[in-house]
Amino acid sequence: MDSARRLGRAQIDVLAQLGVSTVLLGGIYALIAVGLTLIFGIMRVVNFAHGEFLMLGMYAAFWAYDLAALDPYLVLLGAIPLFFAVGLLTYVLVMRGVIHASHNAQIFTTVGLSIALQNVALVVWTGDFRTLRPWHSSVVIRVLGTAFNLSQVVAFAIAVALTLALFAFMKWTHSGRVMRATAQDHDAATLMGIDTDRVYRLTFAIGIACVGAAGVLVSPLYAVYPTAGLQFVLLAYVVVVLGGLGDMVGAMLGSLIVAAVEVLGSYVFGVAWKEVFYFVLFIAVLVFRPAGLFGQRGAETLGV
Protein backbone atom coordinates (compact mmCIF):
# COMPACT_ATOMS: atom_id res chain seq x y z
CA MET A 1 0.00 0.00 0.00
CA ASP A 2 3.04 2.15 0.43
CA SER A 3 3.50 2.57 -3.27
CA ALA A 4 -0.13 3.45 -3.75
CA ARG A 5 0.16 6.35 -1.36
CA ARG A 6 3.16 7.62 -3.26
CA LEU A 7 1.24 7.72 -6.52
CA GLY A 8 1.33 11.23 -7.82
CA ARG A 9 -1.04 13.03 -10.10
CA ALA A 10 0.82 11.80 -13.19
CA GLN A 11 0.64 8.14 -12.22
CA ILE A 12 -3.06 8.36 -11.52
CA ASP A 13 -3.56 9.85 -14.96
CA VAL A 14 -1.58 7.01 -16.49
CA LEU A 15 -3.63 4.44 -14.61
CA ALA A 16 -6.86 6.11 -15.66
CA GLN A 17 -5.71 6.18 -19.25
CA LEU A 18 -4.72 2.50 -19.11
CA GLY A 19 -8.00 1.58 -17.49
CA VAL A 20 -10.13 3.39 -20.02
CA SER A 21 -8.00 2.08 -22.90
CA THR A 22 -8.59 -1.42 -21.65
CA VAL A 23 -12.34 -0.98 -21.56
CA LEU A 24 -12.51 0.64 -25.01
CA LEU A 25 -10.37 -2.07 -26.58
CA GLY A 26 -12.21 -4.81 -24.69
CA GLY A 27 -15.55 -3.69 -26.06
CA ILE A 28 -14.39 -4.10 -29.64
CA TYR A 29 -12.68 -7.43 -28.99
CA ALA A 30 -15.90 -8.62 -27.41
CA LEU A 31 -17.87 -8.01 -30.59
CA ILE A 32 -15.30 -9.97 -32.62
CA ALA A 33 -15.09 -12.79 -30.12
CA VAL A 34 -18.79 -13.12 -29.44
CA GLY A 35 -19.46 -14.17 -33.03
CA LEU A 36 -16.68 -16.74 -32.88
CA THR A 37 -17.87 -18.19 -29.60
CA LEU A 38 -21.50 -18.20 -30.76
CA ILE A 39 -20.59 -20.24 -33.82
CA PHE A 40 -18.54 -22.62 -31.74
CA GLY A 41 -21.10 -22.92 -28.97
CA ILE A 42 -23.92 -23.88 -31.28
CA MET A 43 -22.25 -25.49 -34.29
CA ARG A 44 -19.17 -26.93 -32.54
CA VAL A 45 -17.03 -25.49 -35.29
CA VAL A 46 -14.01 -23.28 -34.75
CA ASN A 47 -14.24 -20.78 -37.58
CA PHE A 48 -10.63 -20.32 -38.67
CA ALA A 49 -11.85 -17.88 -41.32
CA HIS A 50 -13.37 -15.51 -38.78
CA GLY A 51 -10.60 -12.93 -39.21
CA GLU A 52 -11.17 -12.81 -42.95
CA PHE A 53 -14.73 -11.62 -42.50
CA LEU A 54 -13.39 -8.89 -40.25
CA MET A 55 -10.98 -7.95 -43.01
CA LEU A 56 -13.85 -7.85 -45.51
CA GLY A 57 -15.74 -5.55 -43.16
CA MET A 58 -12.74 -3.24 -43.03
CA TYR A 59 -12.51 -3.18 -46.82
CA ALA A 60 -16.24 -2.51 -47.15
CA ALA A 61 -15.82 0.54 -44.93
CA PHE A 62 -12.70 1.63 -46.74
CA TRP A 63 -14.21 1.51 -50.21
CA ALA A 64 -17.45 3.14 -49.15
CA TYR A 65 -15.42 5.98 -47.71
CA ASP A 66 -12.96 6.16 -50.57
CA LEU A 67 -15.45 5.97 -53.43
CA ALA A 68 -18.58 7.54 -51.98
CA ALA A 69 -17.23 9.43 -48.96
CA LEU A 70 -19.60 7.44 -46.75
CA ASP A 71 -18.86 7.56 -43.05
CA PRO A 72 -18.14 4.11 -41.55
CA TYR A 73 -20.96 4.53 -39.05
CA LEU A 74 -23.36 5.02 -41.91
CA VAL A 75 -21.86 2.05 -43.72
CA LEU A 76 -22.52 -0.04 -40.65
CA LEU A 77 -26.25 0.16 -41.29
CA GLY A 78 -25.78 -1.56 -44.62
CA ALA A 79 -22.92 -3.78 -43.52
CA ILE A 80 -24.86 -5.68 -40.88
CA PRO A 81 -27.49 -7.06 -43.28
CA LEU A 82 -24.82 -7.47 -45.95
CA PHE A 83 -22.64 -9.63 -43.74
CA PHE A 84 -25.66 -11.48 -42.46
CA ALA A 85 -26.29 -12.44 -46.09
CA VAL A 86 -22.62 -13.28 -46.62
CA GLY A 87 -22.81 -15.52 -43.57
CA LEU A 88 -25.92 -17.26 -44.90
CA LEU A 89 -24.31 -17.80 -48.26
CA THR A 90 -21.09 -19.09 -46.73
CA TYR A 91 -23.03 -21.49 -44.58
CA VAL A 92 -25.02 -22.86 -47.48
CA LEU A 93 -22.10 -23.13 -49.89
CA VAL A 94 -19.28 -24.14 -47.59
CA MET A 95 -20.20 -25.06 -44.04
CA ARG A 96 -23.34 -27.13 -44.48
CA GLY A 97 -21.41 -29.90 -46.22
CA VAL A 98 -19.09 -30.48 -43.27
CA ILE A 99 -21.33 -29.67 -40.35
CA HIS A 100 -21.58 -33.37 -39.44
CA ALA A 101 -18.07 -34.28 -40.59
CA SER A 102 -15.01 -34.81 -38.40
CA HIS A 103 -13.25 -32.01 -36.53
CA ASN A 104 -10.41 -32.23 -38.97
CA ALA A 105 -12.69 -31.78 -41.97
CA GLN A 106 -14.21 -28.70 -40.32
CA ILE A 107 -10.82 -27.28 -39.41
CA PHE A 108 -9.53 -27.67 -42.96
CA THR A 109 -12.69 -26.29 -44.53
CA THR A 110 -12.55 -23.07 -42.55
CA VAL A 111 -8.77 -22.86 -43.05
CA GLY A 112 -9.33 -23.25 -46.80
CA LEU A 113 -11.97 -20.54 -46.69
CA SER A 114 -9.56 -18.30 -44.83
CA ILE A 115 -6.83 -18.78 -47.43
CA ALA A 116 -9.23 -18.24 -50.33
CA LEU A 117 -10.78 -15.05 -48.92
CA GLN A 118 -7.43 -13.58 -47.87
CA ASN A 119 -6.05 -14.04 -51.33
CA VAL A 120 -9.12 -12.92 -53.21
CA ALA A 121 -8.57 -9.67 -51.30
CA LEU A 122 -4.90 -9.71 -52.26
CA VAL A 123 -5.66 -10.23 -55.94
CA VAL A 124 -8.48 -7.74 -56.13
CA TRP A 125 -7.22 -4.99 -53.82
CA THR A 126 -3.43 -5.70 -53.76
CA GLY A 127 -1.40 -6.01 -50.58
CA ASP A 128 -1.15 -2.24 -50.01
CA PHE A 129 -1.87 -0.90 -46.55
CA ARG A 130 -4.82 1.44 -46.77
CA THR A 131 -6.11 3.81 -44.15
CA LEU A 132 -9.27 5.81 -43.92
CA ARG A 133 -9.38 8.94 -41.86
CA PRO A 134 -12.91 10.22 -41.38
CA TRP A 135 -13.20 13.51 -39.46
CA HIS A 136 -13.96 11.80 -36.16
CA SER A 137 -10.70 9.90 -36.09
CA SER A 138 -8.83 13.15 -35.48
CA VAL A 139 -11.19 14.56 -32.84
CA VAL A 140 -9.62 14.08 -29.44
CA ILE A 141 -11.75 13.85 -26.33
CA ARG A 142 -10.18 14.72 -22.98
CA VAL A 143 -11.82 13.59 -19.79
CA LEU A 144 -10.16 13.67 -16.36
CA GLY A 145 -6.65 13.58 -17.70
CA THR A 146 -7.33 10.84 -20.25
CA ALA A 147 -7.40 11.34 -24.00
CA PHE A 148 -9.09 9.37 -26.79
CA ASN A 149 -10.12 9.97 -30.29
CA LEU A 150 -13.78 10.04 -31.07
CA SER A 151 -13.69 7.03 -33.44
CA GLN A 152 -12.44 4.84 -30.63
CA VAL A 153 -15.21 5.91 -28.28
CA VAL A 154 -17.96 5.58 -30.85
CA ALA A 155 -16.64 2.19 -32.02
CA PHE A 156 -16.70 1.03 -28.42
CA ALA A 157 -20.21 2.32 -27.81
CA ILE A 158 -21.61 0.70 -30.94
CA ALA A 159 -19.75 -2.56 -30.31
CA VAL A 160 -21.16 -2.79 -26.79
CA ALA A 161 -24.64 -1.91 -28.04
CA LEU A 162 -24.48 -4.64 -30.70
CA THR A 163 -23.14 -7.20 -28.25
CA LEU A 164 -25.90 -6.40 -25.78
CA ALA A 165 -28.45 -6.60 -28.56
CA LEU A 166 -27.18 -10.07 -29.38
CA PHE A 167 -27.46 -11.09 -25.73
CA ALA A 168 -31.02 -9.81 -25.63
CA PHE A 169 -31.80 -11.68 -28.83
CA MET A 170 -30.43 -14.92 -27.40
CA LYS A 171 -32.26 -14.49 -24.12
CA TRP A 172 -35.67 -13.21 -25.09
CA THR A 173 -36.54 -14.19 -28.62
CA HIS A 174 -37.86 -17.54 -29.70
CA SER A 175 -35.03 -18.01 -32.22
CA GLY A 176 -32.51 -17.20 -29.51
CA ARG A 177 -33.99 -19.79 -27.18
CA VAL A 178 -34.01 -22.37 -29.93
CA MET A 179 -30.34 -21.61 -30.60
CA ARG A 180 -29.46 -22.02 -26.94
CA ALA A 181 -31.38 -25.28 -26.77
CA THR A 182 -29.43 -26.57 -29.75
CA ALA A 183 -26.17 -25.52 -28.14
CA GLN A 184 -27.04 -27.45 -24.99
CA ASP A 185 -28.01 -30.71 -26.60
CA HIS A 186 -28.02 -31.06 -30.32
CA ASP A 187 -29.63 -34.51 -30.34
CA ALA A 188 -32.40 -33.58 -27.96
CA ALA A 189 -33.09 -30.46 -30.02
CA THR A 190 -33.44 -32.58 -33.14
CA LEU A 191 -35.79 -34.95 -31.34
CA MET A 192 -37.93 -32.04 -30.24
CA GLY A 193 -38.44 -31.12 -33.85
CA ILE A 194 -35.99 -28.23 -34.01
CA ASP A 195 -34.73 -27.71 -37.53
CA THR A 196 -31.02 -27.68 -36.70
CA ASP A 197 -30.03 -26.76 -40.22
CA ARG A 198 -32.02 -23.55 -39.87
CA VAL A 199 -30.46 -22.91 -36.47
CA TYR A 200 -26.95 -23.34 -37.86
CA ARG A 201 -27.72 -21.10 -40.79
CA LEU A 202 -28.95 -18.38 -38.48
CA THR A 203 -26.05 -18.85 -36.09
CA PHE A 204 -23.43 -18.59 -38.77
CA ALA A 205 -25.10 -15.55 -40.33
CA ILE A 206 -25.31 -13.77 -36.97
CA GLY A 207 -21.71 -14.61 -36.11
CA ILE A 208 -20.50 -13.25 -39.44
CA ALA A 209 -22.70 -10.17 -39.14
CA CYS A 210 -21.07 -9.44 -35.76
CA VAL A 211 -17.54 -9.76 -37.03
CA GLY A 212 -18.32 -7.86 -40.23
CA ALA A 213 -19.74 -5.03 -38.14
CA ALA A 214 -16.63 -5.13 -35.98
CA GLY A 215 -14.52 -4.80 -39.14
CA VAL A 216 -16.39 -1.67 -40.16
CA LEU A 217 -16.02 -0.23 -36.66
CA VAL A 218 -12.27 -0.75 -36.42
CA SER A 219 -11.59 0.52 -39.95
CA PRO A 220 -10.83 4.12 -38.87
CA LEU A 221 -8.45 2.82 -36.19
CA TYR A 222 -6.30 0.23 -37.98
CA ALA A 223 -4.72 -0.16 -41.40
CA VAL A 224 -6.70 -2.21 -43.94
CA TYR A 225 -4.86 -4.99 -45.81
CA PRO A 226 -5.61 -8.58 -46.86
CA THR A 227 -4.21 -10.23 -43.73
CA ALA A 228 -5.50 -7.55 -41.35
CA GLY A 229 -7.88 -10.10 -39.86
CA LEU A 230 -5.11 -12.33 -38.61
CA GLN A 231 -3.96 -10.20 -35.69
CA PHE A 232 -7.54 -9.79 -34.50
CA VAL A 233 -8.56 -13.37 -34.93
CA LEU A 234 -5.56 -14.62 -32.99
CA LEU A 235 -6.68 -12.31 -30.21
CA ALA A 236 -10.23 -13.56 -30.55
CA TYR A 237 -9.03 -17.16 -30.10
CA VAL A 238 -7.31 -16.12 -26.89
CA VAL A 239 -10.47 -14.37 -25.76
CA VAL A 240 -12.79 -17.27 -26.40
CA VAL A 241 -10.43 -19.80 -24.90
CA LEU A 242 -10.10 -17.66 -21.79
CA GLY A 243 -13.83 -17.28 -21.57
CA GLY A 244 -14.50 -20.89 -22.47
CA LEU A 245 -15.30 -21.76 -26.08
CA GLY A 246 -19.01 -21.31 -26.61
CA ASP A 247 -19.56 -19.16 -23.50
CA MET A 248 -20.80 -15.70 -24.48
CA VAL A 249 -20.50 -14.04 -21.09
CA GLY A 250 -17.07 -15.61 -20.77
CA ALA A 251 -16.15 -14.02 -24.07
CA MET A 252 -16.98 -10.58 -22.66
CA LEU A 253 -14.80 -11.16 -19.61
CA GLY A 254 -12.08 -12.71 -21.76
CA SER A 255 -12.10 -9.62 -23.97
CA LEU A 256 -11.45 -7.37 -21.01
CA ILE A 257 -8.66 -9.63 -19.77
CA VAL A 258 -6.96 -9.73 -23.15
CA ALA A 259 -7.38 -5.99 -23.58
CA ALA A 260 -5.88 -5.44 -20.12
CA VAL A 261 -2.94 -7.72 -20.91
CA GLU A 262 -2.42 -5.90 -24.17
CA VAL A 263 -2.67 -2.39 -22.72
CA LEU A 264 -0.56 -3.12 -19.64
CA GLY A 265 1.89 -5.28 -21.57
CA SER A 266 2.47 -2.52 -24.13
CA TYR A 267 2.87 0.03 -21.38
CA VAL A 268 5.24 -1.96 -19.19
CA PHE A 269 7.23 -4.03 -21.69
CA GLY A 270 6.73 -2.17 -24.94
CA VAL A 271 4.56 -2.98 -27.91
CA ALA A 272 7.11 -5.46 -29.26
CA TRP A 273 6.61 -8.05 -26.52
CA LYS A 274 3.00 -7.74 -25.54
CA GLU A 275 1.90 -10.56 -27.85
CA VAL A 276 4.12 -13.02 -26.04
CA PHE A 277 2.04 -12.47 -22.94
CA TYR A 278 -1.25 -13.35 -24.42
CA PHE A 279 0.01 -16.35 -26.29
CA VAL A 280 1.64 -17.67 -23.16
CA LEU A 281 -1.55 -16.93 -21.28
CA PHE A 282 -3.43 -18.71 -24.05
CA ILE A 283 -1.34 -21.88 -23.87
CA ALA A 284 -1.41 -21.83 -20.09
CA VAL A 285 -5.19 -21.57 -20.04
CA LEU A 286 -5.51 -24.32 -22.64
CA VAL A 287 -3.31 -26.61 -20.58
CA PHE A 288 -4.54 -25.86 -17.10
CA ARG A 289 -8.11 -24.70 -17.56
CA PRO A 290 -9.06 -25.85 -21.06
CA ALA A 291 -12.74 -25.17 -20.56
CA GLY A 292 -11.90 -21.54 -19.89
CA LEU A 293 -11.31 -19.58 -16.73
CA PHE A 294 -14.96 -19.76 -15.77
CA GLY A 295 -16.13 -22.96 -17.46
CA GLN A 296 -16.60 -26.52 -16.39
CA ARG A 297 -13.86 -29.01 -16.98
CA GLY A 298 -14.02 -31.78 -19.49
CA ALA A 299 -15.32 -30.18 -22.67
CA GLU A 300 -11.92 -30.16 -24.35
CA THR A 301 -11.11 -33.82 -23.88
CA LEU A 302 -14.59 -34.95 -24.75
CA GLY A 303 -13.69 -33.49 -28.11
CA VAL A 304 -16.83 -31.41 -28.38
Partner: peptide, 28 residues
Protein backbone atom coordinates in the same frame (compact mmCIF):
# COMPACT_ATOMS: atom_id res chain seq x y z
CA UNK B 1 2.04 -33.27 -24.20
CA UNK B 2 -0.51 -30.70 -25.35
CA UNK B 3 -2.01 -33.30 -27.68
CA UNK B 4 -2.69 -35.47 -24.67
CA UNK B 5 -4.60 -32.75 -22.90
CA UNK B 6 -6.42 -31.27 -25.86
CA UNK B 7 -8.34 -32.68 -28.76
CA UNK B 8 -9.53 -31.49 -32.16
CA UNK B 9 -9.79 -27.74 -32.57
CA UNK B 10 -8.31 -27.12 -29.12
CA UNK B 11 -5.12 -28.87 -30.14
CA UNK B 12 -4.96 -27.04 -33.48
CA UNK B 13 -5.36 -23.70 -31.70
CA UNK B 14 -2.64 -24.50 -29.19
CA UNK B 15 -0.17 -25.38 -31.96
CA UNK B 16 -0.89 -22.06 -33.70
CA UNK B 17 -0.19 -20.24 -30.44
CA UNK B 18 3.03 -22.20 -29.97
CA UNK B 19 4.40 -21.26 -33.38
CA UNK B 20 3.35 -17.65 -32.86
CA UNK B 21 5.34 -17.49 -29.62
CA UNK B 22 8.42 -18.69 -31.49
CA UNK B 23 7.75 -16.16 -34.26
CA UNK B 24 7.64 -13.34 -31.74
CA UNK B 25 10.82 -14.57 -30.06
CA UNK B 26 12.67 -14.84 -33.37
CA UNK B 27 11.47 -11.52 -34.74
CA UNK B 28 11.89 -9.48 -31.56
Amino acid sequence: YLSNRLRGPYFALSTIAFSQVLLILASR
